[in-house]
Structure formats: structure tokens, C-alpha cells
Design a protein around this nucleic acid. Structure first.
Lengths: 214, 214
DNA sequence: CCACCGTCTTGACGCATGTCAAGAGATTCC
DNA sequence: GGAATCTCTTGACATGCGTCAAGACGGTGG
């Protein structure tokens, strides 16, 4: 049986590299398919079509369809977690970081829209499919931390403390991002510039206001 | 054929009331099913199970499954659009409105979580299924206006102008709401109190800051 | 060279789905 | 009261799905 081979292999002496490499390869094909069709219409045969293998191979590497999807979701996480770290590392002024971050947000929509709509699809699915929930929650937390690194660095460069909690900062930006993605997928490419302007407006609101005289 | 009868009926002399009443009745059953199972796993037979009819009746009232879903989505809109209007109408102070609005947000999660997760599911689906896009976009716009009524009334009561555009205000609050819903569905009921606190923090940030001395 | 094991393909299965045709009740109208 | 029309049920269909068994292929070790 494939299953027993799997477990035998995973505990075996040989390099697990090749076995895991195939799993990741299938995850990549699955992500492409999911990004194109969405969760509801993704089939194993279509995933296989987007790979160099036939549809039967999935059950050699995964117990069932959901196991493949979950593995794909985890694999996806590795990609997106460090997306804005260069922004944090390279910026030397608050305004510079603001611009770089806003641009990067727009860029990631432009270049990876299918992957992002998949993320929101899967996050919605996790509210119906319990087995997805743990992984989705973990990724969401990771994204929150990613955003938090940006916001705290921005605050540091600006010399003002952040006045919001990490979930609030993440939730606000995620809402704007999702709104832009929705419009962008609908054909409104001009929305990317709007997103940039929105982020430049909102991020300063997250810092404790400076004293003004009036 | 049912289709020709439909169109004949719709253009006919008789009161369309009963025909449309049945359509709405089926929409209600469809919404219940969709809220329970999600878009991906909702079947016509299951929708019929949640109604007093058999599965075949759907094709008497709708051209196909997607037409039923779309009609259900439109039907759903009528429910949620005026949800916060009483808050706007009854509040007499800025703080009172803030409290009432935040409480109402939490209450609607507590009492209609399935319907809300369905909304986010369908909004994600609309990024894959073109036929859903127009209606989803329209509803999203309506929700934005609903939020805008709250925010502008809040600003009016507080005597300060709103410093954000309607989409930004909606996007921010929607992000927080969605985050809370996700946690709530995952079993974290305490998140509702957190949401209330978050909204009380964020709404004031949307208004032009008063001058302070420091 | 042969046996073995990991890898992958092929083809089939049982099942659930959307759709629809045929007809049974129910209702309405003359 | 009977005919016509509206309404709904039943049962079937083709299709596509996840799953899995059987075996082919290819390399590796004895």
C-alpha cells in the first residue's frame, strides 16, 4: 500500500529529500490549480494536469485530497511570510518605508493575484471545514506578525509609538488589501494606485498623534 | 418546459406574487444550507431538504443552480442593509453611538455567524466565478454605504469631520469584523468583547484629530 | 542477471451531483 | 363538472468526482 510506504519511507534511513520534494512539487501544482479555479472547483485530475504526473500519483504521496490541500497551504506560507522584510530592512526613513510598503502591497496584488484570492478563499473555507482551521489560523497569525514588523519599524523610524494592538493593525490593512484585490480581480487595475494612497493615509493613524496647537 | 412557463408567468397577467414568494422561500432554504455547508458543499438536494419541497422543484423556479444562488444573494442583501440604521437613528451622543454600534457588530456575529461566513465565502467565490461578481460588488457597495452612514453620523455627533474616504472606513472595519468572525467560528467567543474594544478604538481615529497642546 | 523496491500509470469502482423528462395532484376558469 | 393550466414529485440520465487496486517501468543491490 502506498500509505505504509509513505510512513515507512518517512521513518526510513534514506534521504527523505526526494519524497518530500515530490510532495512540494505536487503542492506547487495544487496551488496553481487552486489559484486558477478556487477551492470549490479544484479536482485532483486538474491538479495532475498542471503537473508532470497522472492523477493517481496523488494517493501515493498524500492520504487524500484534503491532505494535499493542507500541505499546499503550509507550503504556501513559506512564500509569503518574508514578503515585506526587505522593506523593513532597507528603509531608513518613515516616509521611505511608507512608500516602499505601499508599493510592495500593490505589487504583490499585480503579480500574485491568483495566490491571494486563493488565500481568502481558503480562509473562508476554514470557517466551514474544521480540518483547515488550525493551519489557516497559524498562517493568519504569521501574517499578522509580518505586518506588525512593518508597523513597529515604521513607528521606530518616525519616533512615535504605535497606538494599536497587532491584530487591529493587521485587520485594518488586511481589509483594505482584500478590498483592492477584489476590485483588481474584477478588472479595475487603477485600484492599485488607490490602495497605495489609502495605505499612506492609514498607517500614520496607527501612531500616537503628535501634539499640535490649535 | 418550466423555463417557458417561468417567462410566460413573469410576463403574464396574474399576480407574480406567489411565484416570487416561492422563489424567495427557496432562497431562504438555500441561504440556510449555504450558511451551514458553504458554497463548495452545498447541493440542490440538500437545499430541498431544508425546504418543504423536493429537489426537482428548483428547476421549476430557477434556470440552474447558480441562478438560485444569485437570487439568494440578492435576497440576502435586503436583510443586512438596514442592520445599523436604528443605531444611527437612536443615538444622541457620539459615545452613545460608538457603544451601540460596537455592541451591534458583536451581536450580529453572535446571532448570525453562519450568514456572515457565507457572505465572505461568496465574496471569495466571486473572484473565481464571474457570474457572481456583479451582485457581490453591488452588495459590497451597499455595505460600504451602510457603514458610511454610521461613521458620518458619528462625526456629526462628535462635531468633527471624517478624515477618511468611505471605502477606507469600510475596509478597515470589515477587516476587523472578519477577523472576529473567524475567531468566533473557531470557538473563541471571547473575541466579541475584543471586537467591541477595537471598534471603540478605531472609529475615533477616523475623525480629524482635535488640536492638543503638549 | 535476477530479485526487489520505490515510483508512477492505467483503468476501474461506487457514489453524488446537476439536470431534465414524464407524469401526478391541485387549482382555476369556463 | 370538465378542461386547461399551474405546481410539484418521482425517477432516471450522463457526467465527473475521490479513491484504490493492479500492474508496468526503472533503478539498485546482491
Amino acid at each position: 500500500m502506498a500509505t505504509s510506504k509513505n510512513t515507512a519511507r518517512r521513518g526510513g534511513v534514506r534521504p527523505v529529500d526526494k519524497f518530500d520534494a515530490r510532495r512540494d512539487q505536487l503542492a506547487e501544482s495544487a496551488l496553481k490549480t487552486l489559484g486558477d479555479l478556487g477551492y470549490a472547483r479544484t479536482t485532483l485530475r486538474e491538479i495532475a494536469n498542471n503537473s508532470t504526473f497522472s492523477h493517481g500519483v496523488v494517493h501515493y504521496y498524500f492520504q487524500d485530497k484534503l491532505a494535499l490541500v493542507i500541505h499546499s497551504v503550509r507550503y504556501y506560507k513559506a512564500r509569503c511570510v518574508t514578503r515585506y522584510d526587505s522593506v523593513v530592512a532597507d528603509s531608513t526613513t518613515a516616509d521611505g518605508l511608507l512608500d516602499a510598503f505601499a508599493d510592495k502591497l500593490a505589487e504583490t496584488i499585480r503579480e500574485e493575484a491568483p495566490m491571494h484570492r486563493l488565500w481568502y478563499d481558503l480562509r473562508a473555507q476554514s470557517m466551514f471545514e474544521e480540518q483547515l482551521r488550525a493551519d489557516v489560523t497559524m498562517i493568519d497569525k504569521t501574517l499578522e506578525e509580518m505586518i506588525w514588523r512593518v508597523v513597529t519599524r515604521y513607528a521606530q523610524l518616525d519616533g512615535r509609538p504605535v497606538s494599536l494592538e497587532p491584530p487591529v493593525a493587521y485587520g485594518m490593512l488586511d481589509g483594505l488589501f482584500q478590498q483592492a484585490l477584489l476590485a483588481y480581480v474584477g478588472g479595475n487595475t487603477a485600484v492599485l494606485d488607490i490602495l497605495v494612497a489609502q495605505v499612506r493615509t492609514v498607517l500614520p493613524l496607527m501612531l500616537t498623534p503628535v501634539a499640535t496647537t490649535g
